[in-house]
Every structure is written in structure tokens, then in C-alpha cells.
């Protein structure tokens, strides 16, 4: 029987559930049990029934933002259960916790995994490298446990009906405190980070007349809005959502480039994007050479038309 431990990010429980797909892909046909480690967040337990076990840790002295303390607790859990794999979501905190824990356990770590291959005996973990230019297939030294962090929003897990998790209450022994104190939490102006977006509807000079209108399409697609420098320079949007060399580098699954010509400065901010749709009055604009579909025409008109089309189809369904 294989045992796999998933660190559940208290800030984003859903992400950790998706990691169950990673567990399944790693252990495949082998018999395995999944364990979820949940720290000071018992209100989330009922959403976690897809795990086999939830290790519920409640301790007032344990700060779930302190990687030093959490590493100690995770090490204790590993000692107790002797896991075959430990998987951590690559969130802000997960990316600090995973390397620390791997070093503690003297095992190799593969970060930001996006794909899992089995090549004969070898488990190959695939991750982006060189800012997404290539995907690297990484093999780790055969030590136990296998450790990896998993890129968010990449894996999808098919929820199983009638699954019930067994909750194990666990009290950690003494752990070291990292002498860190959280003073304040502030929601950011733009409530999303375009670097994390799955779908971006992005506007350029061709949407200058009415940039805000592109939100119409973004909403229909459950997407987020980003912009090229021209829009930012014209004061039409916050710098937080600028894509490109002087803005952010984004890697959504779908990028809809509305009225963006694709100067090299802009394209520098597009990495590892599987699907690009470009809407441009000029079908030979540089961005078009990167695109799956080029729509020749006015970007704002396209926004209206495609939004209507999506509405139409939604209506038919209802």
C-alpha cells in the first residue's frame, strides 16, 4: 500500500483537491491512500471528502504561514506514516515549504510540475524552465518520499461520488517557531494576478476607444483582463495588468489578443501559451504569426459579436 501526503493550502483548498489527480497519476495502478494535511482550518474539512484521510492539525501556537514550524510538523507526519510521496501546491507558501522540507528529508524536489510521465521504471516529472521556453523532464534519485510541488490550475480531478474522508486529529510534538509575525493582510486593488490567470482577454491599441468594453467578453469566458503598454500609457488601465517586457510575463492556457500588434516588447511577456487568438484589422501583424486563429477585423466589434454568440448558446442550453 502506497501512501501519499498532500499539503492543503488553507488559502486555496480547491487547488489541493486537484492535486489528487497528481497522486493518482504518480501511483497509477498501485494501491494507494491519499492523506491531506490541514493546519488550523477545520472549517474546510467538509469540502475535503475526496481524500482518503484528512490529518487535522489544530494548534494555537502553530502559525500556518511560518515555513519553519510547518516543516517540523510535516517531518513528524512523515516519520509517523512513512509516505511514498509528498506533494505541495506551488503557491506562495508552498514554494517556501517544499524546498525546506525536501532538504530536511534529504530528498530531491521537482518544482512547479505540470505533467507526469512514466518512462519504464522512471517517474519523469515535467516542469517549465527558462521562463517557459522549454519543458524539462526531471528524474529524481530513488529516495523516499518522492517530492514535488505542483503548478496551480494545471491538473483537473474527476470528483468521485460518495467518497468520505476519514478525519485523523493530530497534535504535533514540539516544533520550532520561525520568529515571524503576520501584521496585516490587504486585498490588492486588482483582485487577480494575471500571471496566474488561465484565460486572459488582453487589449491593445485597437481597443483604445473603449478598453473597458473588453471586460464584457472576459466575463463571458470567466477570464481576466490584461493590457498592452499602449493602454497603460494612455491611463486606461492599472499597471498591474500590463503584459510585456516592462509589465508581467503571463502563461495562460488561452490568450485573446485584441487589437495588439505584437511588438517584440509585448511578446516577451507571453510564455508557454497553448492557445492564442488574435483579433486585428491587419492579418499580417506580428502577433498573428503566434496565433492559432487570426480574426481579421475590429477588436471591439469582435468583443460584441463573440459575447452575443456565447449568450445565444447559453440561452439555448437553459
Amino acid at each position: 500500500m502506497k501512501k501519499s501526503l498532500v499539503y492543503i493550502d488553507p488559502e486555496n483548498v480547491q487547488n489541493s483537491i486537484e492535486i489528487l489527480e497528481v497522486v493518482a497519476q504518480i501511483h497509477q495502478e498501485e494501491d494507494f491512500k491519499s492523506y491531506g494535511a490541514l493546519i488550523n482550518n477545520s472549517t474546510s474539512i467538509q469540502g475535503l471528502h475526496q481524500f482518503d484521510y484528512i490529518i487535522n492539525i489544530q494548534n494555537q501556537n502553530l502559525k500556518n504561514y511560518d515555513p519553519v514550524a510547518v516543516t517540523d510538523v510535516m517531518e513528524q507526519l512523515n516519520k509517523k506514516y512513512n509516505f511514498d510521496s509528498i506533494i505541495i501546491p506551488a503557491t506562495h507558501f508552498g514554494r517556501m515549504l517544499a524546498p525546506r522540507l525536501a532538504m530536511r528529508l534529504h530528498v530531491g524536489l521537482v518544482a512547479d510540475v505540470t505533467k507526469i510521465n512514466h518512462n519504464g521504471e522512471n517517474l519523469e516529472l515535467v516542469r517549465p524552465a527558462f521562463s517557459g521556453r522549454i519543458m524539462a523532464g526531471i528524474i529524481t534519485e530513488a529516495r523516499k518520499p518522492i517530492m514535488l510541488s505542483v503548478r496551480q490550475n494545471v491538473f483537473a480531478y474527476d470528483v468521485q461520488a460518495d467518497k468520505e474522508a476519514e478525519v485523523i486529529d493530530y497534535q504535533p510534538e514540539n516544533f520550532k517557531q520561525g520568529e515571524i509575525e503576520l501584521l496585516n493582510i490587504q486585498e490588492n486593488n486588482i483582485s487577480y494576478d494575471i500571471r496566474e490567470s488561465e484565460i486572459l482577454v488582453s487589449g491593445g491599441g485597437g481597443t483604445l476607444k473603449n478598453f473597458d468594453q473588453i471586460k464584457l467578453l472576459a466575463d463571458k469566458l470567466n477570464a481576466e483582463v490584461s493590457a498592452s503598454r499602449k493602454i497603460i500609457d494612455n491611463g486606461k488601465a492599472d499597471r498591474n495588468i500590463q503584459v510585456g517586457q516592462s509589465g508581467k510575463t503571463v502563461s495562460p492556457d488561452l490568450y485573446i489578443a485584441l487589437g495588439i500588434s505584437g511588438a517584440i516588447e509585448h511578446v516577451a511577456g507571453l510564455k508557454n501559451i497553448d492557445n492564442i487568438i488574435a483579433v486585428n484589422i491587419n492579418k499580417s501583424a506580428p502577433i498573428c504569426s503566434l496565433s492559432d486563429i487570426v480574426v481579421e477585423g475590429d477588436a471591439l466589434e469582435f468583443v460584441k459579436k463573440l459575447s452575443d454568440k456565447i449568450d445565444e448558446n447559453e440561452d439555448q442550453k437553459n
Partner: peptide, 10 residues
């Protein structure tokens, strides 16, 4: 403890 076994280009 880790090594690059393959690279895949996108």
C-alpha cells in the same frame, strides 16, 4: 538528487 532527463520544446 535531480537531473534533467528530457527536454520538450513548446
Amino acid at each position: 538528487l535531480t537531473r534533467v532527463a528530457n527536454t520538450y520544446n513548446k
